[in-house]
Design a protein around this nucleic acid. Structure first.
Lengths: 228, 228
DNA sequence: CTTTTGTCGATTGTCAACATTTTAAGATCG
DNA sequence: CGATCTTAAAATGTTGACAATCGACAAAAG
């Protein structure tokens, strides 16, 4: 108990309630505890988290700017509902950002980084062989996060993280995963191969195509935006 | 007087003080009234704008998320200072986003849109001939905004707008403009030509190169990040 | 029966005050 | 004279209360 309160105090000295609450809300959105379209009741949230409404409201303003909630004046904040068109647009932006990450990484990649990426691909193969979708998904995420981070553009890192958080708002995203695990990992191998060959243009093209294939599996060819 | 109060009331019914203040702060940053590194005094701002600190703090949390200010716990919010590396990273991201905008627009562009873009280029030529840098800059902005908007990806539109706002934090950005007006507009013509030819890949490449040339003029070749 | 109007409860928008932390000036000591 | 501790002022973090607004339901008018 004393440990808890101590660490809580320590935390509160280095972080504000606002940032803690914002992360908590992001987590709730990510795990689906807050579902799309739902309204956030400030009083209820404040009571549940044991704080006043001020930090709650401040956190919501941050979430609004990062696109996770919509704020309507005098009506409240609503968990953003991503329709098919929004999701398709996100895929397109993500495709070119991932492409850039590959183009940046290829010329400067170290052998150790190639080994790390290769390991992720092998772990995904293992998860796939075991039919373990819950193991595949986080590794897939780590794989792409690593490429972006190794690329060295910190703005690109935060941008991709933000887009990924937004993607969680699209509930049907899991549809593309089960059937595509095998082909998806084949594409991963090709991506690592282009990076290892220090082929910037090839890596960029492979990464971009990788995302667009997912996009097209869900929504049809680029340029066509579904309405729902 | 009555008109003023009426419109003010009308505004306050459709917008919150928070959003009004956020826009006001964004404007202050854009015109340089708030310079990089400067601290925002909540009390002073509240007194100056005639509101309490609550809406000020909420607005700052939004600005933090959009990267315009840094918030340090118990110390305050500071106008973000973009160093050379940050700016170079922004250019790289902007390059691929502009490239995407061209690739999206080329297949669906209307003749009217081509005419609009051509007009912007001609206006830039005129401003250039008159040595009017203050006339060139906003048209250049409108030109690229138009391409992004015509592309039809609304997420890309807001993304590019956010990046452009962030760019204002880099004070030395004007360095690349004076000498590059002529060549820059030549590149603009090539971009419009590729779009008018419905050449998606060509338009994407031309736009991407257009941004990277500016970037390299400021910072050197891609892949090298200056520290300051 | 439909539409409009009025009222009520709930929720958000805003504010002023309190608590905690930082900062800077001044005093004290080596 | 410089360094360090003390202390007061200023700034931020947080809270609870008040005012304004919205949605829903009921009552009255057409």
């Amino acid at each position: 108990m004393s440990l808890d309160t101590d660490s809580a105090l320590q935390l509160r000295r280095s972080q504000s309630l606002t940032s803690i609450i914002r992360r908590e809300l992001e987590r709730m959105i990510e795990i689906g505890e807050l579902s799309a379209g739902e309204r956030l009741n400030e009083n209820a949230l404040a009571a549940k988290l044991g704080v006043s409404r001020g930090p709650i409201r401040e956190a919501c303003r941050g979430l609004e700017q990062s696109g996770l909630v919509d704020v309507v004046v005098n009506r409240g904040v609503f968990i953003r509902a991503l329709n098919g068109r929004d999701a398709a647009e996100l895929y397109e932006v993500r495709a070119v950002l991932y492409g850039l990450s590959g183009r940046l990484l290829a010329p400067i990649v170290t052998d150790e980084q190639v080994a790390t990426l290769t390991r992720y691909v092998e772990e995904m193969d293992a998860a796939m062989a075991a039919g373990d979708l819950n193991g595949f998904y986080p590794r897939n995420l780590r794989f792409h996060e690593a490429i972006v981070e190794f690329g060295g553009n910190s703005r690109l890192v935060s941008e991709c993280a933000a887009i990924h958080r937004e993607m969680h708002l699209y509930r049907r995203r899991t549809l593309d995963m089960p059937g595509r695990m095998a082909t998806s990992n084949t594409e991963h191998r090709a991506i690592v191969e282009r990076i290892a060959a220090r082929d910037a243009a090839g890596a960029a093209a492979a990464l971009e195509e990788h995302v667009l294939i997912s996009r097209n599996a869900l929504f049809g060819p680029l340029g066509h935006y579904p309405d729902a």
